[in-house]
Write a protein that binds this DNA or RNA. Structure first.
Lengths: 209, 209
DNA sequence: AAATAAATAGACAGAATAGTCTTGTCTTTT
DNA sequence: AAAAGACAAGACTATTCTGTCTATTTATTT
């Protein structure tokens, strides 16, 4: 089974991808191919030609939509972030009950994410890890993504009436990062539960309601 | 100030590098240059020629010591891991008091690490993030490194007489990973303290002595 | 001093890289 | 039917990549 077939199979299961079925217009096909290859094989390691072959498009088409590889990388990261957040917050919106329940549900949703056989970690963490230490382009995108997560966490923290909203949000954020990295390295989704217990511990300690 | 000068200055401050002074023999010079470039600019993004220029060696010399770039990467990761562990456990060995104090001191040592202006995150986390999802070569090296850390944590957990040694070790490991990533992204060393508080919280909850 | 080992400089091969450009086909809109 | 635009196929440039090889020089050892 080659990459393309595998991707469709896996992503139909996970349900947070660009699309369950292969997109028909060229731009989306390029985005989909680039996303898969960048995230699974690395940004620098993935050549334009490889993306073209996978997307089944011509080179001129790619450079008609994106002025450079760097711009394509940016577009992919933004799209990955958008898609992920929609999926993630969508799942959390279904959770009924107080904010505390919703925050703890974060780790159940993470466990589902980690359990996807095609799980490759967080694209932003991977990108910051790969690119130059002083490359602020990628760092800004990652910051922006995390900021939206932290904003959500702060809103929950306020609802939970914790004494230090920012510190609670930071704590949960650290637990999320730690769980992602641990799960990515070990391929063991249960690290989400370890992180969840730590979150419970924190929330209990600060008297979250 | 160019990279080479900067490296020496910074690393003399941090004290966990290969050597405070530039090494004289060719092999060490290659290792030192490769370490710096791989860790700061990425593994794939760093070319052999760039390493040679920085190390001031000939190409034949490099390929006389390492049969390929991949082998050099492996050697660099192993050396980085060895150096880091020596520094890290050395710092912790200086901590007096019960195991609980020693485990919490982990996060103080991490904060020092994060505070180094040349801090680039954990080479293993970065390498796993960059290389192919299915590349087990790098993953094995990372596993090996983390395993040694977890082994140490388990030993402390036993001394602390916690009910579930493995779970406590996993928890601290998740906190370490989370702190590293959060600090790397934000360049904010104080995430070590956030992680520390979470660790205190866990240890208190499981009744560590 | 002679012999051996190690490092230097750099040419070179072969493949891959990002990006440009031309030509032709197909589809949609007017 | 005609015009317009999107796309495919692929040639092409110019650079960079890893890795090999030769020839020369420096260091070390015998």
């Amino acid at each position: 089974m080659d990459d393309a077939v595998q991707e469709v199979c896996l992503r139909q299961g996970s349900g947070w991808s660009f699309a369950a079925l292969p997109p028909k217009n060229a731009r989306d096909r390029i985005m989909s191919a680039a996303s898969f290859l960048f995230c699974n094989h690395g940004f620098a390691a993935t050549g334009i030609d490889t993306i073209l072959t996978r997307a089944g498009t011509a080179k001129a088409t790619l450079y008609n939509h994106f002025k450079s590889k760097e711009e394509l990388i940016t577009a992919v990261l933004e799209a990955e972030g958008e898609t992920w957040r929609t999926w993630f917050f969508g799942r959390l919106a279904d959770v009924t009950g107080p904010a505390r329940t919703r925050v703890l549900a974060v780790f159940d949703v993470l466990e589902d994410w980690f359990s996807d056989p095609g799980f490759y970690g967080c694209p932003f963490i991977n990108a910051v890890a790969e690119f130059d230490t002083n490359d602020d382009t990628v760092r800004r995108l990652a910051d922006q993504h995390k900021e939206r997560l932290v904003t959500w966490l702060k809103a929950q923290a306020i609802e939970m009436q914790v004494p230090d909203v920012a510190e609670t949000a930071r704590s949960i954020a650290v637990l999320i990062d730690g769980a992602i990295v641990a799960a990515q390295h070990s391929r063991d989704a249960s690290f989400a539960r370890t992180a969840r217990k730590l979150a419970e511990c924190h929330l209990a300690a600060v008297g979250a309601r």
